[in-house]
């Protein structure tokens, strides 16, 4: 969006991903007998018409409620899930416009660090092979160099290199998360999707990994899509932030502006809840009203059942993502001149 076509490294246009959860026989039968209509297949609109362009060397933070489709979007970008709809361009080309070689290069250049390291690491392989196999297979290193290469990558993410002969189950949660990071970095990617990659690390090691990411970004022009619920971390490292709500992008803005002056009512609510370090016990408040479900997304603006500014129009009309300033986009009817609420800029 902010980047013009030519300079975008990755460009998404109207990308959607839907999952169909088939009703089983028993459900269909009960539905028929009771006539309550619950026997139909359930469709989850995990990602719903997302437009996004990311420049080389940019760090884009991706934030949104649990279950809003962040990991799914990451998986579509890295080619793990095919998209249901939409167009994706890598260096200006769609997959069908690429040669076999280019497609292969893209698969290697775009890497994902998975949210759930345990299920993405082969339990029967030693860490040395988990990290070293891909770079060897792709000719990035020679067979004789594998040990020193693996040791060097392990050290960069704060893992003790003497652990390289261990299997994944012999590591702590945070150590496993770092194996996932090391594996992705080892193939020298150009674009990295980090899915909650530092959430399992203590703040000092988290600092080491974040500093490493920022260094790679500056020195090698590595590009990041950084998925995180930790707004402190997102604020620290991102150039731009993308806010998602129930499968849709609702706001895109440069980090500093977003934190200073959020536009979308969902973003406003989110930022007001950033937990700060306290020396008093905090009261935790339950979510008011019902949490909307991606199985039955609310009509119109998905956020309207929870939005303090919702108008009639919001219940029926989907707000489109519109430019509201330099590099700033938001999907809210309030940005239409005639809908400005009184006393609220």
């Amino acid at each position: 969006m902010t980047a013009s076509k030519s300079e975008a490294l990755l460009e998404l246009q109207g990308i959607s991903k839907r999952f169909v959860q088939r009703a089983d026989v028993a459900e269909k039968l009960t539905a028929k007998l009771t006539g309550n209509g619950k026997g139909a297949d359930r469709v989850v609109h995990a990602v719903d018409h997302v437009d996004l362009a990311i420049r080389r060397g940019e760090v884009v933070g991706l934030v949104g409620e649990s279950g809003c489709g962040k990991s799914t979007l990451g998986r579509v970008i890295t080619g793990i899930h095919p998209s249901t709809e939409g167009v994706m361009r890598w260096k200006g080309k769609t997959e069908s416009e690429m040669t076999g070689e280019e497609r292969h290069a893209m698969r290697l250049a775009v890497q994902m660090i998975f949210q759930d390291p345990m299920s993405s690491l082969n339990p029967r392989k030693q860490v040395r092979d988990i990290i070293g196999e891909a770079p060897l297979a792709h000719g990035l290193i020679k067979k004789d160099d594998i040990d020193s290469y693996v040791e060097q990558v392990m050290q960069r993410v704060g893992l003790d290199p003497t652990y390289k002969m261990r299997y994944p189950h012999q590591f702590s949660g945070g150590q496993r998360a770092r194996i996932g990071i090391a594996r992705a970095l080892a193939v020298q990617p150009e674009f990295l999707v980090c899915d909650e990659s530092v959430a399992a690390l203590d703040v000092s090691i988290q600092a080491q990994v974040i500093n490493l990411f920022m260094k790679l970004c500056h020195e090698l022009n590595l590009t990041f899509l950084f998925i995180s619920h930790d707004l402190g971390v997102v604020q620290h490292i991102s150039d731009r932030v993308v806010i998602m709500y129930l499968g849709r992008v609702v706001e895109v803005a440069p980090t500093e502006e977003l934190f200073k002056a959020p536009n979308h009512p969902y973003t406003k609510g989110l930022l007001s809840e950033i937990p700060r370090i306290a020396t008093q016990p905090r009261e935790f408040v339950p979510i008011k009203g019902e949490i909307p479900s991606p199985l039955h997304p609310p009509s119109g603006c998905h956020f309207h059942p929870r939005c303090p500014y919702a108008m009639d129009r919001c219940k029926t009309e989907r707000p489109v993502l519109k430019q509201i300033g330099t590099n700033r986009w938001s999907a809210c009817h309030l940005n239409d001149a005639d809908n400005k609420p009184a006393g609220n800029a």
Binding site: G158, D160, V203, I205, A207, D230, V233, H236, I237, I277
Partner: peptide, 26 residues
């Protein structure tokens, strides 16, 4: 004390975060 110093909100934005020097012991 070192841990508290590494919390991102206790660090200036965009600058390297303070980390505890050295490596985790084996």
């Amino acid at each position: 004390a070192g841990l508290m110093g590494s919390v991102p909100s206790n660090n200036p934005r965009g600058k390297p975060l303070r980390q505890i020097p050295g490596m985790t012991p084996s």
